[in-house]
Amino acid sequence: MIPGAATVRRGDTLRMAGACAALLAVAAGLGTAVNFLRPAATRLPWVGDWQHHVETKAFRAGIPVVFLAGARERTEDPATMVFDARVPEQYEAGHLPGARNLPVGEVDRRLGALASVLTPETPILTYCGGSDCADALELAEKLREYGFQDLTLYPGGYAEWTEYGGAVHAGSEP
């Protein structure tokens, strides 16, 4: 080892770290400035309330979540039971193909009628209006209390489904 080489390398490392810090500082400055200059409606607060986001709650509750691709896959799978947790009026106006209406408050009353098509192992997908509603998560948790094991939540819900051109059925039938 050449005695001076270690010193040179250390100096190089420090200069390299300085260059990295400079790039990161520029990026942080640009990000902050652009976010500050955005219209208030699209500006992101520095700290978001992600603890109460429905996906975070589902993760904590141990309910698996699927997104658009997963929801499409499951609605096409005849073995999967899809439950729409919204109120009947919203369901009748339009719902995912094959979905049955099951608002959280109606589970105790309506579940008996579905006994012939449901087993504890039946894959179940629940959804509601969109990521700002928690009804589908509450429905999944309620169904878990009844012993259903294969539960999945689609947090994007009806809003995302229709936004991306998903087919919908209207009326009171699935």
Binding site: L24, A28, L30, G31, L44, W46, G48, Q51, H53
Partner: peptide, 19 residues
């Protein structure tokens, strides 16, 4: 942690841009 999600979302794309 939820507290850092927005911070990353604000700054990370600009790190990608400058880098």
């Amino acid at each position: 942690p939820g507290e850092f999600v927005n911070l990353v979302a604000i700054v990370l794309p600009w790190i990608e841009l400058t880098s």
